[in-house]
Amino acid sequence: MNRLTILAVRLALLGAFLAAWEMLPRHGVLDARMLPPLGDVLRMLVDVLGRPRVQEAIGVSAGEFAVAFLIAIPLGAAIGILIAENDYLGEIFKPMLFYVFSVPKSIFLPMFILVFGIGFQQKVAYAAFSTVFIVIMSATAAVESVKADHLLVARSYGATRAQIIGRVYLPSMMPVLLEALRLSMIFNFTGVLIAEMYASRTGIGQLIANWGENFQMPQLFAGVVFLATVAIVFNESIRWLEAQCSAWRT
């Protein structure tokens, strides 16, 4: 199958899905109270995005997301690089991190509420906590993806330490780092939303949980469409960046 056919089939499937979403509830095949027609959801989305309370909630969530990200990325990267570069620390901590990585982070959420109360700090702390492990793992993998041969070549041409970092480490690690950025954004996003849905006074996650509890299905689906769009746009932007520098990856 050529690329055009594949694209056409994909678009057709998407179109069919959206059409079904609009038609089936509209004509009573599906219960419109459980699944409002797409047109109603989109109208509600425009309406909801215009409300100050919703805009404020989005702002709060975005703030939590940004701060958690700014904590988790440098912290995780520093720990990951330390573990990868130092054999001693690596032998001790790597297995432990693997164990902790496998544990679902959401079970720690009640503890974060006990320690930080309910609010901005608790959301940020929990989101950073649920993100930092994937950053550590990825940073370790990124450092280990640097080839010893390349370091030797750079040294044999008299590269300084700074030159080795800038001209060998960074470009070698770039594809893995971008992948790490993408994954950690997903983890971070999920962390913020779960924390807000579980217990919160504001934030887009809290709104969605609330709409769900109150059976406000058009609002609920508007929120879902909004968050799904944001997540996909983020994800695809980084994938695009990855594609830019992955020509030589294979």
Binding site: D149, V153, W248
Partner: peptide, 8 residues
């Protein structure tokens, strides 16, 4: 030996 060129 082989593979010492920088692929980027």
């Amino acid at each position: 030996q082989e593979a010492s060129l920088f692929p980027w």
